[in-house]
Nucleic acid binder design. Structure first.
Lengths: 200, 200
DNA sequence: GTCTATATTGGGATAGAC
DNA sequence: GTCTATCCCAATATAGAC
């Protein structure tokens, strides 16, 4: 038996990880199965041993990434809610995130308009991810500061919008200004978090 | 001479208008030239009498729409800056806008992630549109309230993010909550604008 | 300026060997 | 499970008639 269960699972995970990166960068139609599988060190035909279609892969890759962000996972011991949220914001609103150099690009920001041409299952996966982001931030923030649901919704919309727009800009100075503005405002609204670089 | 200059210009304008709507709805790769020209009551070949390529059309359509929004044009006489800005916000952050039922969908929100796979000229057109939006809002708001550049940048990012996310959601109640949250926050930050429905 | 016909390329999915 | 070869459709762009 030349291919073990282990091996199949590892390959599957590799495909999910790589394909999310590519979809985030180029959108659903901008990625060909050839590109993708070559990037995984495999060939086109192999995909269909793991996923039934390109759309199915896209959905699974979105869910895979959504479950593996810092926001979706418990905070480490020893950090206060405020400290942890502050770190999350700093990561999210960073040049590295915008440039896709994180291995944890946010699907919400990177796929936002791409979702509109996808099927219902994909839209639902996206909406779930969005809800989870709101829930996570609400959970941290409400433990130490007063904020209502509208505060949370407006902050996440700003964060997602900021990263989505920043990604389109060609000039790093503009990107940095935008990120700094958003850091300041999000910090204010989430109970007075401050950043070293927020006046940049 | 069966085709006058008038006629050509009118056709060109029709193509720009229709194609923007389609691109906004389905993205660059989601629109075929066949779809588009059929929508204009023409056939594929005719496109190339007006534009040299699909990408060129996309860029021109973006610029065409960007020049024809309420934000890009002078406010009507008789409205105060604050009143006018309030109306602009209400329009922008409306269900009609999200659903694309305006004939003035905002390219920034509708094309956000689509821009990343386009050429430099298109990115530049998009960035110009973005800058114009910031400039217009800054112009109105700074006439009657204190706000710095970071306030403006964070408000526009929130507005664009809100519409982009709202568009992906399948449930109208979620959309309305998000819009209401963003109206309230934008209103606050832009000198105490209030809306009837902002507590919805 | 617009049409129809066509050249050409590219990409999703399947078949069958290993 | 992965490979290569192939089927098949779709889509951009051009050619040439009107």
């Amino acid at each position: 038996m030349p291919y073990t269960k282990e091996h199949k699972h590892k390959t599957r995970t590799r495909i999910l990880d790589r394909s999310f990166r590519l979809f985030a960068k180029k959108g659903f139609k901008g990625v060909t199965i050839d590109d993708l599988m070559r990037d995984c060190g495999l060939t086109r035909g192999a995909l269909y041993a793991h996923f039934s279609s390109k759309a199915e892969l896209y959905r699974e890759a979105l869910e895979f990434r959504a479950c593996n962000t810092k926001l979706a996972n418990p905070k480490p011991r020893g950090a206060s809610n405020k400290q942890w949220l502050s770190l999350l914001l700093e990561n999210y609103l960073s040049l590295k995130h915008v440039k896709g150099e994180h291995d944890l690009a946010c699907p919400l920001a990177f796929l936002a308009t791409d979702i509109n041409t996808q099927n219902k299952a994909i839209k639902t996966a996206y909406a779930d991810t969005y809800e989870n982001m709101n829930t996570a931030i609400r959970g941290y923030a409400s433990s130490y500061t007063d904020c209502d649901e509208q505060d949370i919704l407006s902050v996440t919309a700003m964060m997602i919008g900021t990263v989505a727009i920043a990604r389109t800009l060609q000039d790093n100075k503009s990107i940095e200004s935008l990120l700094a503005a958003c850091r300041r405002e999000a910090g204010k609204k989430l109970g007075g978090i401050t950043f070293n670089s927020s006046t940049l």
